[in-house]
Nucleic acid binder design. Structure first.
Lengths: 340, 340
DNA sequence: TACTCTACTGAAAGCGCTGTCATTTCTACT
DNA sequence: AGTAGAAATGACAGCGCTTTCAGTAGAGTA
């Protein structure tokens, strides 16, 4: 601890101003002096105190990332992408996830308020009045992942789910002759869910596919829950020759396994497709047809936007949309040409 | 931004000292004055500047967590546990993972050096001279996860792998009549791998089980690699009536699938067991017999120890060992009484 | 009345750094 | 020689906070 700029200055026989100049590579410092200072720095193992620096510069080089949860590969990949990019750009990453009952307001306030982080990336699965109010108060650069908060200035990173969902469903209908598609979706209030259901309605309408009242289920993205639902429903679904469109790969895997447990096979008796293209999708047998979501790119993009805005606060708000891609494997019963 | 303690003081008609006293609940401040200050604070939406505070107190209430990688459920669960506990204790978590070629030294130095974090938890899969040198230089509280660095003072959180491995292998030998056990392990230099192999040798010796020269493989914990190895080897293994002991569930899943692809079935033709008890273990068919590792507890425990040491630096070094537990499912061919 | 306590509050000194402005030294030109 | 300008460096004022020390006022005591 506690080797300060003064110590360096003393050892190099210069004033602290000069040391500071060497540190910040600004103004011109005489070649020889600079060398002297630099060797004093490395001799002493000096590194500038972040607090003092932050106090002056109002910059911490820390970025915050707030996620709704940390469970599952999805978030883990977002974090991975964010971490990588942050380090490339010379920033540190502070990660928090919403805990228990809190809807994130408390957390975002805690992280965003006291000036610790230079910018905040938040992923919100559900925008309510409280979260909006909290976000409105945040005065630092803000990037919203996978959502939009009206009335609050922020950049956003969204994934173009619509295209993915449409491609997926069209594939089921056109290439696999699906005439009925059951949806095992996320929570009703979830932004993703809403968006995907819209696309679903659109495609089914367009194709003249009947959607029965009970054809849309709202679960929690967990394998187990989907498995339990599957145990009760797979026979009925199979009887009605339905396809299952699950909102993530884990739930799809749950359905596949439930079918298997019921003596049915995928895709012959019950075709199933997933979403996200996590590793789960290639670990089930048959492997899942799914939609690839660029998870780590989301994290990286969020960090990118954040840095850009930190360095140029004036820039107009940006909305970055990331492509999704249909990945055809065996679980949907199509002649699978695809590899990977 | 920028409502400072002075603004609060002005509004409450007191000096900044008094505001500070109210903030820190120390000394006695007159009841009435305190109320005035408090309402000024909330009127202004004031919250103290972390940098100024950190500069004085030498405390940031930020804890660092350095992981060797972020891929996979293992790390994601560690993070989850750490995040939860950190928030409970009022600390923020800064997470970084080693990137690309770096062995972590660079990162640990970056995080640990400049006094930003109050304490550092690191998970190192491989201790080399460079990492040791880096850790020696770190002057803040240090917790090492799943390893030990001689010569450096630190607390540690380890998992008692030995017990788990022994229980697992004994189960294979005694209850499943294994006479040959092939190991699909992690990298040779990896601490975990070494520890587990020791236990493996011990148990096989004790049971008089023959270990052929080529029976131990060193892979990278990935499903794909294990699958590829499996494709080449499963027939041979099955012919020799071998059991496969994989170092994590993902590789176990890879082997199971490779067997399936070769027309063999688990456990009948090739029993396979995993390690960690991640969700993968319950997603394969058959579900994996494995050893449960308390992943999120590791994260939580690391944070606990860190906080304790931050608050009491004198405390002698502590080594916390977390239990592992054998989880018997169907992949090993035992009469599975177990649930979940 | 004079003095001592107690209870509270304010003034001011930094914490380690950056950035402005002043100062010094040196070179170039009249 | 005298002066202007450029180049290099130093002195110093904060950034927003905590904390020590020094008041001040009122109550209690002799």
């Amino acid at each position: 601890m506690s080797v300060s700029i003064q110590d360096v200055a003393d050892r190099a026989n210069v004033s602290i101003s000069t040391v500071s100049r060497v540190l910040n590579r600004r103004n011109i410092v005489n070649e020889e002096t600079r060398k002297r200072v630099e060797s004093a720095i490395s001799d002493l193992g000096y590194s500038p105190n972040v607090f003092a620096r932050g106090l002056m510069l109002r910059k911490s080089h820390i970025l915050g990332l707030v996620l709704p949860d940390l469970h599952g590969e999805f978030y883990s990949e977002v974090i991975r992408g964010a971490n990588l990019r942050a380090r490339e750009l010379g920033y540190n990453l502070m990660i928090s996830s919403v805990v228990a009952k809190d809807d994130g307001s408390e957390l975002m306030a805690a992280v965003g308020d006291h000036g610790l982080v230079d910018g905040l990336a938040v992923m919100i699965s559900e925008v309510n009045a409280r979260t909006r109010a909290t976000l409105e108060k945040i005065k630092i650069p803000l990037v919203v992942l996978d959502g939009d908060v009206e009335g609050v200035k922020h950049d956003s990173v969204v994934i173009d789910q619509r295209t993915g969902v449409v491609a997926l469903l069209r594939h089921l209908i056109e290439d696999c002759q699906a005439r009925r598609i059951v949806v095992v979706g996320g929570l009703e209030t979830n932004i993703d869910t809403i968006e995907r259901l819209e696309a679903y309605r659109e495609v089914t309408d367009e194709a003249g596919i009947e959607v029965a009242a009970g054809d849309v289920y709202h679960l929690d993205y967990e394998y187990d829950t989907a498995f339990d639902l599957g145990v009760k429903k797979v026979r009925e679904w199979a009887r009605r020759r339905a396809f299952v469109f699950a909102a993530n790969d884990e739930m799809a895997a749950g359905i596949v396994d439930a079918a298997l447990a019921a003596g049915l096979s995928t895709p012959d008796d019950l075709p199933v497709v997933g979403f996200d293209d996590t590793r789960v999708a290639t670990m089930t047998r048959p492997r899942l047809t799914t939609v690839r979501v660029p998870m780590s790119s989301m994290g990286a993009a969020a960090i990118d936007l954040l840095c850009q805005r930190v360095e140029n606060p004036k820039r107009p708000a940006v909305k970055l949309s990331l492509e999704t891609e249909l990945v055809v494997r065996e679980s949907c019963g199509a002649a699978a040409v695809a590899k990977s």
